[in-house]
């Protein structure tokens, strides 16, 4: 079987198109590359959606934590503490079993027990908490002069937030937020190793890498392939976030621009 044929059979295997059976013996390099790459679709799906949705919730959380109103501040603080203080792995398990018991009473929760929605919700809440803390820190380090100038120009309320506070907050938070995005993409590898089952062997990249490592008893091929894919993904994330960073810092003189410093790859 030619490599092109393999790609046609397995490139979309993780989302349910193409060949039904996974290869069972005589594994070729091509099969490993294709299937693990196919699994990356899920990693990108989880990462991108959780990141986008989490961004807005994180902004709300940061504002809530910085608020003077106790009824806004305390819930935000507790939410952030809950998700930052416990392992994502346990959160996945807890979320899965929670949805499972909810399903028995309310049919509405049926789709939540599948990874595509349930794990996405957990990841979304988790990244919102971590980014919320980052944004909160940035919110507190906005230069006093900026806000005072805004006041002097007659800005207040929503326009002040939209035009002054929010852009500055993003600018200050962006390097840390880039790291958070990288963590998030790496964290997506946990999904199919926690409670969420892989339906019809449609899993993410690590699921397939683990499949090959189990079958061939040779970890030295699939895991480096997986690492390669993740490094490429990380580089893409870094360059996209770098472009946004350049845009956020456009008005600043060249030497003041903050370089994004990468601290990759810590587990949560």
């Amino acid at each position: 079987m030619s490599c092109w044929q393999t790609i046609q059979d397995y490139a979309l295997r993780s989302v349910g198109y193409g060949e039904r059976l996974l290869p069972r013996d005589d594994f070729t390099l091509c099969q490993q590359f294709t299937l693990i790459g196919s699994g990356m679709i899920w990693n990108v799906y989880f990462g991108v959606l959780a990141l986008i949705a989490g961004f807005f919730f994180a902004t709300a959380l940061a504002l809530g934590k910085g608020s003077r109103n106790v009824w806004l501040r305390k819930p935000a603080e507790w939410f952030i503490f809950l998700f930052r203080g416990s392992p994502l792995f346990v959160q996945f398990f807890f979320g899965y079993f929670l949805f499972l018991s909810l399903k028995q009473h309310y049919a509405f929760f049926e789709p939540f027990t599948a990874a595509w929605l349930g794990a996405l919700v957990v990841l979304f809440l988790n990244t919102a908490a971590y980014s919320g803390e980052i944004f909160y820190g940035a919110l507190r380090s906005i230069p006093k002069g900026d806000v005072e100038s805004a006041d002097a120009y007659g800005f207040s309320g929503w326009p002040r937030f939209k035009k002054i506070v929010w852009p500055t907050m993003l600018r200050l938070a962006w390097p840390a937020y880039t790291n958070e995005a990288i963590f998030l993409f790496h964290a997506t590898a946990l999904v199919f190793f926690s409670g969420f089952p892989a339906w019809q062997q449609r899993g993410d990249a690590l699921y397939y890498a683990n499949y090959f490592a189990d079958k061939t008893f040779n970890p030295f091929v699939p895991y480096p392939i997986l690492a390669m894919y993740f490094i490429i993904l990380t580089l893409i994330v870094v360059s996209i976030f770098g472009l946004i960073n350049a845009r956020l810092n456009k008005h600043l003189p060249q030497e003041v621009k903050r370089k994004i410093k990468l601290r990759m790859n810590l587990i949560r």
């Binding site: 590898a189 690590l206 890498a209 970890p219 030295f220 993740f230 990759m264 587990i267």
Partner: peptide, 16 residues
Amino acid sequence: VRGVPDIAFFLFFVIA
């Protein structure tokens, strides 16, 4: 070690 996704590292390293 910093460049590779850690959970993959855990799975890999034990067998290796």
